[in-house]
Design a protein around this nucleic acid. Structure first.
Length: 501
RNA sequence: GCCGCAUUCGUCUAGUGGCCUAGGACACCUCCCUCUCAAGGAGGAGAUCGGGGGUUCGACUCCCCCAUGCGGUACCA
């Protein structure tokens, strides 16, 4: 066990889109595999036919690829341990379930869903009245059926499930790499279903069989699975297999730190929507490299000082023993901060190239040259790519509609503003060369002559030219806008001021 | 109810018995820079380490109890 190569797997079920928690689990598996020079396997756990969602799988694969978490074996690329869809492996699970049946370690159960439900309800009642022992789950009604009873059920045509016959006494124990030794009384375990009546396996059976058959050495998964590990231990023992190393990752909490960050849509206290699906982050304009860096830090840390890590660096320093045991909140603020930092670190051509499709999608008739021209001015101002359109959309429309109040910033009178804009328009119109430096020189001279404060003068010009009180740096923006359009807008603004009185 | 896991500034965390009068980061506040907004720079505020008992010369660090939170308790994963 010491010298075998590390094999880990990410095993999502195609019941929903790739979300933060899943991506984090996938990332840790990926980083661990790469760090150890091992293999990263992707396995699709599509054993729940009722919750199957056709769009989930493509979303999962695309999300992983966008994050750069390429799998070594799995869907679309195959591998020597396939197939990698559990729905293609049902015959295996059946064989193993029947083996346990033959050995008397499992039994057929004919109980109806109704009987199970009412039994559960009764159990809850007892609990609420302080009765019972707290022994959970199925009452083992079918574990001790006589041959005749079985024959009767079969005659009725009931399709049974197969349940594991869990030891009634004793203790089941295991070690988790992060949490240490964990022991559970067997009386706390119920006779779990291994094979459903539709012939598909439950997670418990399929996961144990596949992890063994696929030679998985380490299981890294969310800690919501911790409670079912004892059941898995029983299965490994029943089959005589060695159990992979267990590593249960801490839950990701919502930003308040109070509740689990679920895949369901959640809102912040002030009603802001929280993104949870990976494709939502992509659409909003988070960089995959920032997502990977940040996700790595949700539940893991390197030391007290460092938190910016490129992919290769992460692979080099990632260490399972430094994974945190306690649940951590997902801080959207810090993600924004980190994404902004990554955006600032991008080359200008790179950033322009990433911006263009997003701007086009948002309806702007943008071209690569003008976007590239804007990049130096907005690069340090945007936290996510999609924000760029709010900054530069003024350059892609014909006419502006002015908000009268905004034209009169800083308590300028309409007359003062009009005079300032007249001067600016005249100066700009007279410019032989419409460059950023020429514009700045001309405008600064006019600002000086106007007697207004710089912020008042430039503020008026800014609103007139862009329609915004907050915009990218003025002189550069005007240069990109072009002489004709700038002058036209200044004059339109003067007219609007005149109408104002 | 029962079982399991967790508990350091608002948030993410560093910390593995003395280096901690607890360090860093995000967010927040002030100032500087400045054509707006950012970015950047300089400061500031913010944690009696969930509570209570032990162990020890000494505990954020080890042990026990309690509280709280989260997870599980499905023919879902």
């Amino acid at each position: 066990m010491t010298s075998q190569t590390v094999r880990v797997r990410f095993a999502p079920s195609p019941t929903g889109y790739l979300h933060l928690g899943g991506a984090r689990t996938a990332l840790y598996n990926y980083l661990f595999a790469r760090h150890e020079g091992g293999r990263f396997v992707l396995r699709i756990e599509d054993t729940d036919r009722t919750r199957y969602h056709p769009e989930a799988l493509p979303d999962l694969l695309m999300g992983l690829r966008w994050l750069g978490l390429w799998w070594d074996e799995g869907p679309e690329i195959g591998g020597e341990y396939g197939p990698y869809y559990q729905s293609d492996r049902v015959h295996l699970y059946r064989e193993y379930a029947e083996q346990l049946l033959r050995e008397g370690r499992a039994y057929r159960c004919y109980c109806s869903a109704e009987r199970l439900a009412s039994q559960r309800a009764r159990q809850r009642e007892d609990d609420d009245h302080g009765g019972a022992t707290g022994t959970p789950g199925y009452d083992r009604h079918c574990r001790y059926l006589t041959a005749k009873q079985i024959a009767d059920y079969e005659a009725q045509g009931i399709r049974p499930v197969i349940r594991l016959a869990v030891p009634l006494e004793g203790v089941t124990e295991f070690d988790d790499l992060l949490r240490g030794h964990i022991a559970v009384q067997n009386e706390q375990l119920d006779d779990l279903v291994l094979l459903k009546s539709d012939g598909f396996p439950t997670y418990h059976l399929a996961n144990v069989v596949d992890d063994h058959l696929m030679a998985i050495t380490h299981i890294l998964r969310g800690d919501e699975w911790l409670a079912s590990v004892p059941k898995h231990v029983l299965l490994y023992r029943a089959f005589g297999w060695e159990m992979p190393v267990q590593v249960h990752l801490p839950t990701i909490l919502d930003p308040s730190g109070k509740g689990k960050l679920s895949k369901r849509k959640k809102k912040t206290a002030d009603g802001k929507e929280l993104l949870t699906y990976i494709h939502e982050f992509r659409q909003k304009g988070y960089l995959p490299e920032a997502m990977v860096n940040f996700l790595a830090l949700v539940g893991w840390s390197y030391d007290a000082e460092h938190e910016f890590f490129g992919r290769d660096e992460l692979i080099r320093v990632f260490d399972l023993t430094r994974v945190s045991k306690s649940p951590g909140a997902f801080s959207y603020d810090k993600l924004d901060y980190m994404n902004a930092a990554y955006i600032r670190g991008l080359g200008q051509n790179d950033l322009a190239g990433r911006l263009l499709p997003i701007l086009r999608e948002s309806g702007l008739d943008a071209d690569i040259d003008s976007v590239l021209a804007f990049v130096p001015h907005i690069q340090e101002r945007i936290k996510v790519l999609s924000e760029a359109s709010e900054w530069i959309d003024f350059a892609y429309v014909d006419d502006l509609s002015y908000d009268a109040g905004e034209l009169l910033q800083k308590r300028l009178t309409p007359q003062q503003a009009a005079v300032a804009l007249e001067a600016a328009a005249a100066a700009l119109e007279a410019l032989p060369e419409y460059s950023e430096t020429a514009i700045e020189a001309a405008l600064r001279a006019q600002a000086e002559a106007s007697g207004l404060k710089a912020r008042e003068f430039f503020g008026a010009v800014r609103v007139a030219a862009t329609g915004k009180a907050v915009a990218p740096p003025l002189f550069g923006s005007l240069a990109i806008l072009g002489q004709a359009r700038t002058v036209r807008r200044l004059k339109a603004a003067i007219a609007a001021l005149a109408a104002l009185g």
